[in-house]
């Protein structure tokens, strides 16, 4: 079945699947982070997303902006590490951009994600190649936009975005980190995948799986 929109229920299913994925990959994310950071990315994301799903379950949102803003605030207050303000900003800005709607078409979802990513860039001052979550999210969003512009349905656009995120994530391995704790390591940060780019790829994987046709 070809779909052209993402519903509120699908947004919630997406978040729930993201929670499952970060929980499943908790040790792996922490292992990546222990190589070049402070070894808390897995536990931070698991704690944050568990708090998000608990909150969403306790007070069901009636619109996309309400849902996404609540996700952002919950991450800000429960994560602790740098991913709190960064993922928090991503969802807060997505929510503001999405507005009080109950479903988003491909262009609207892409615009919301773009606003979120712009917020992350403004917060973290990351650029392409700095070995951050931006290196997965930015190509993913470009792939999403290209797919939607080419007439692809949500499912195909999400698959394209996930594939681009994986590629972007893998490309962070040889990079020398220029942002965050990993940048303290300089050259020694090369040879490891970036934990933030890895968890961001899980976000796209969760989306692709949720809207798979």
């Amino acid at each position: 079945m070809s779909t052209s929109t993402i519903t509120l229920d699908q947004l919630i299913a997406w978040l729930s699947r993201f929670r499952d994925l970060v929980t499943e990959k908790q040790s792996y994310l922490t292992e990546l982070d222990s190589a070049i950071g402070d070894a808390d990315h897995g536990s931070n994301m698991t704690r944050g997303m568990s708090a998000v799903i608990e909150k969403v379950g306790a007070a069901p949102a009636t619109a996309a902006d309400e849902l996404l803003k609540s996700v952002g605030m919950t991450l800000v207050t429960s994560v602790g590490g740098a991913s709190g303000p960064l993922y928090g900003t991503l969802f807060l800005r997505m929510g503001v951009n999405a507005g009080p709607v109950t479903e988003l078409d491909g262009a609207a979802f892409g615009a919301a994600l773009r606003a979120g990513l712009d917020g992350v860039v403004a917060r973290g001052k990351a650029e392409a190649g700095d070995k951050t979550m931006f290196d997965a999210l930015s190509p993913a969003l470009d792939a999403w936009d290209a797919a939607v512009a080419g007439g692809a349905d949500i499912s195909a656009a999400a698959s394209a975005a996930f594939a681009a995120a994986e590629k972007g994530r893998d490309a962070t391995e040889p990079l020398v980190a220029r942002k965050g704790r990993a940048s303290y390591l300089g050259e020694r940060s090369a040879g490891h995948l970036d934990p933030g780019a890895t968890s961001s790829t899980l976000l796209l994987q969760a989306l692709a799986e949720t809207v798979a046709s």
Binding site: V76, T77, G80
Partner: peptide, 14 residues
């Protein structure tokens, strides 16, 4: 300081 529940971290709301 801290992110609640004894978690080492920071919280923008706090």
């Amino acid at each position: 300081a801290g992110a609640g529940d004894g978690i080492i971290g920071t919280d923008a709301v706090k």
